[in-house]
Simulated scan of single mutants.
Amino acid sequence: MGKKVTAADVARVAGVSPATVDRVLNARGGVAKDKEARVLTAARRLKLDRALDLRAARTLRIAAFLQPPENPFHATLAQAFANQNKGPNPYNLQTKVFYVGPEDSPAEMIAKHASSYDAVIVSQPQDTALVSALEHLAKAGTPVITLATRVIAKDVIHVGPDDYRTGRVAGELVGRCLGREGGSVLAIAGHLSMAGQAARYQGFRDVLVERFPRCQLLPLGESRDSGPRAAALVDSALHDHPDLRAIYNASAGTVAIADLLKRRGLAEEVMFFTHELMSERRALLSEGVLDAVLDQDPVKEVAIALHVIADAFGRSPLKVDTTEPPVRIYFRESL
């Protein structure tokens, strides 16, 4: 029979004192995050307890900075975090959601709250102050995840699809649905200050230019995630281009656009494509007002982000396979 592994063995492998091992494995707290991660990793490596109960470790507190829930996608993200808090939660993580409104500074809100949390998740438009705040946290050893919306910053992990490639898929879908005759196409972004939105539009445009020359892309609209503004952009496009054949809405405002098309009697004339299979978009797809929805599964994205954080603290026996969830296309017959 092999020699029984002791706390001293774990301490030696982890490079900490036996007292630190005792504090971590018995959830007494007061241990730096990096040391806690090293102890848990060493304990598993030495098979101190094959069924090491992650729930026994102290609760890791995570701050998630999202856009207001008026944006359906961010409302879904927030609900996914709430469900994770209440679910099996094997990694013992608890997430607090902070909503950052259009008049708020993400960097200032993060600076105000982040020091009280073990990790930070962000889904916000890119700006210089935000990049600086995230890089400061990452340099100090705090795991930082950008979720769904990429912020280009050093030592930050992004969880979400490849937006440029997703845009190309959307362009291919629209171009093929319009067929050989093509026609006028209106694309609407939410906030072009979001790197993902800009990349998505670029991919969409590139495919239409490369493969579907009969599709004429109208000037890009920016809704700023406002439903009324998105509908107004469509209304203006229909006035200037009564032959409009397709709308690609890459952000919020889908319901407002659908209502406008139905009022105008154009729901069956103008093809309509959007992202994220929320309940109201599922209904519009079933009704035939939406022709297709590209879905990146925000619930899955939240699960991946939490897995990445658990892994950073040595709480997951399995490595994260990918931080890029697949994008799926749904038609009415997919429901």
Rank of each mutant, 00 (worst) to 15 (best):
G2V: 13
V10G: 01
V13S: 09
A14P: 06
S17R: 02
R23F: 05
R28N: 00
R44V: 07
R44E: 08
I62Q: 09
A64L: 15
F65I: 01
L66A: 01
E70I: 13
T76Y: 14
A78H: 08
A82M: 12
Q84H: 07
N92P: 05
E103T: 15
A111Y: 02
S115M: 06
I121E: 10
V122L: 06
D127T: 04
A133V: 08
L134Q: 05
H136N: 12
L137Q: 14
G141D: 02
P143I: 03
R150C: 07
D155R: 02
H158E: 11
V159L: 06
D163G: 04
G167S: 04
G167Q: 07
V169L: 15
A170S: 02
L178P: 00
S184Y: 08
I188M: 04
L192W: 00
G196N: 12
G196A: 14
F204N: 01
F204S: 02
P213V: 10
L220G: 08
P228I: 06
A231D: 04
A232R: 08
V234N: 07
H239T: 09
L261S: 08
K262G: 00
K262P: 00
F273E: 11
H275C: 06
E276N: 01
L277K: 08
S279H: 12
V289M: 03
V293N: 05
V299R: 11
V299G: 11
V299D: 11
V302P: 06
I304S: 07
A305M: 03
A305S: 10
I309A: 09
D311R: 15
A312E: 07
G314L: 11
S316G: 05
V327C: 00
L335M: 15
